[in-house]
């Protein structure tokens, strides 16, 4: 498997004066690339951060690292210029990037520029006799679809949290990439406000266990019950759109059709009716437990264990029972 697979690794936005890290998903795209070929990384960020970021890329398995310095305040076009240059240089069989804002923006721009086949939000990549193919989970996990390029390279964005494989660390082989700027107009990032406090809890997108709360929690204060249960289980916190709309939690925690799609080992739904759009984002979880006072809530149609009852009684008892079992 020597075919080069190019991955796009971007510096995450950072506050003034802070050193940027690689944006989320870097380890995953390199892991996915290693499954189908030789992972090559294009690392894009501010000049001063490139050496450290390139080293991280190698530690995550990039056998070759190309670096491109961009003005990170310019959105979209400069990253696409660098990616197009790297594709010309590496002639990869496939190009992978995280399905993040910046990843999707770069993928879209480069796909039209090169008129290349584009697979968006893939959950896996595989190789068959014909080459690399992308796998998708469609209509909320109701269908599995795979697609491939009729004429390469296949450009694919990977859903965050979907790939478990990790590539082995290698010694860095780094070189700077020559990038010809197209000078395309770009939107400008004026400022960046880091999120208040990075939570100690696992990240929703890649968590093995998730406890999610819905409108049934009734208030932001009472949503703390969901957090307590999550902490007792070492789980991430999720929410329904109704809970997000009511302001109980941040939108980044929304699970569902238009939120995050998750496929954990355990999904525990508390006070969530299980509307079709919510189920679309979680029904591929391995084990589903639901607590809801309405015996007719559709969430029970897909729960491995469904408990009809008052969450305000059950959840505190469950937290206590879990703590007691831990001893």
């Amino acid at each position: 498997m020597t075919q080069p697979i190019l991955t796009l690794l971007l510096a995450a936005p950072a506050a003034e004066g802070a050193e940027p890290r690689l944006a989320d998903g870097a380890a995953e795209v390199l892991g996915a690339a290693a499954l189908v070929g030789a992972p090559v990384a294009l690392v894009v960020g501010p000049e001063s951060a490139l050496p450290a970021l390139a080293e991280t890329a190698a530690s995550l398995g990039a056998t070759e690292v190309l670096t491109a310095s961009v003005d990170t305040a310019q959105l979209g076009a400069p990253v696409a210029d660098a990616l197009a240059a790297a594709i010309a240089e590496v002639a990869p069989e496939a190009v992978l990037m995280p399905h993040s804002i910046e990843g999707a923006d770069a993928a879209g721009r480069v796909a039209v520029r090169l008129r290349a086949p584009l697979s968006v939000d893939a959950v896996a990549v595989e190789r068959d006799e014909e080459g690399v193919l992308a796998k998708h989970s469609v209509y909320g996990g109701a269908y599995d679809v795979s697609s491939a390029a009729s004429a390469g390279p296949l450009i694919a964005t990977l859903r965050l949290g979907s790939v478990d494989h990790r590539a082995e660390a290698v010694a860095p082989a780094v070189r700077a990439l020559e990038v010809a700027s197209t000078g395309r107009p770009a939107a400008v990032a004026e400022s960046f406000e880091p999120a208040a406090q990075a939570s100690e809890r696992p990240d929703l997108r890649s968590a093995k266990k998730i406890v999610s709360g819905g409108r049934g929690l009734g208030s932001k204060e009472q949503f703390a019950l969901v957090e307590q249960l999550a902490d007792a289980l070492g789980a991430a916190v999720g929410a329904s759109r109704a809970a997000v709309d009511a302001g109980y939690v941040d939108q980044s925690l929304q699970v569902g059709q238009t939120g995050t799609s998750v496929a954990p080992e355990l999904y525990l739904a508390v006070g969530i009716s299980g509307a079709i759009q919510h189920r679309a984002g979680m029904q591929t979880a391995k084990t589903i437990i639901a607590i809801d006072k309405d015996a007719n809530a559709p969430i029970f149609e897909i729960a491995d264990l469904g408990v009809v009852g008052d969450l305000f009684t059950i959840v505190p008892q469950l937290v206590a029972a879990l703590e007691a079992r831990k001893g």
């Binding site: 193919l133 269908y143 795979s146 491939a148 009729s150 264990l305 408990v307 009809v308």
Partner: peptide
């Protein structure tokens, strides 16, 4: 430019045990 190779429907999930507290 891209071709769909295969599409398969996942079997629908079945309800498990439902208990009343």
């Amino acid at each position: 430019r891209s071709i769909m190779l295969a599409a398969a429907q996942r079997p629908p999930r079945e309800a498990g045990e439902i208990i009343t507290d």
